[in-house]
């Protein structure tokens, strides 16, 4: 299982990549692995807004449903429509092709409590 060091993580198993004023959000390798084969994903519309710790979408496998919780608040500047048609990308490349949304960072405070790769890895080991 991979935990890229350049990403930040949430306890709800999302990852965040910060580039300038933009945060890219997806779900972690661990999340896709526990869900199993993803068959459906629901994302917010481009131009909409998301709120920290609130659901912004849904991922489903054959036998599980999981809400996607936003790691930060802000406007959605881009949505990865490709994964809506090919949700299997979430299993195949969770940190790459299967990014979900890009959010314009409103406040850096939002990012302050996110976990580092090491912290996240420790967290899931404890959760098991």
């Amino acid at each position: 299982m991979e935990f890229p060091k350049d990403l930040k993580y949430t306890k709800e198993h999302e990852w965040v990549k910060v580039e300038g004023n933009t945060a890219t959000v997806g779900i972690t390798d661990y999340a896709q692995d526990s869900l199993g084969d993803v068959v459906y994903v629901e994302l917010p519309p481009e131009g909409g807004s998301v709120t920290k710790n609130e659901p912004f979408g849904v991922v489903e496998s054959v036998k599980a449903v999981s809400d996607l919780y936003s790691p930060l608040s802000g406007n959605v500047t881009e949505v990865n429509d490709a994964i809506i048609d090919s949700p299997e990308a979430i299993n195949e490349d969770p940190y790459g092709d299967a990014w979900m949304i890009k959010v314009e960072i409103g406040s850096d405070d939002d990012l302050a409590d996110l976990l580092t790769a090491d912290e996240y890895q420790k967290f899931i080991e404890e959760e098991k």
Binding site: Y40, E60, S61, V62, K63, A64, V65
Partner: peptide
């Protein structure tokens, strides 16, 4: 059976 995530045993 399919689209079971709509149903009570999952959701």
């Amino acid at each position: 059976l399919t689209f079971a995530t709509r149903e009570q045993h999952i959701r």
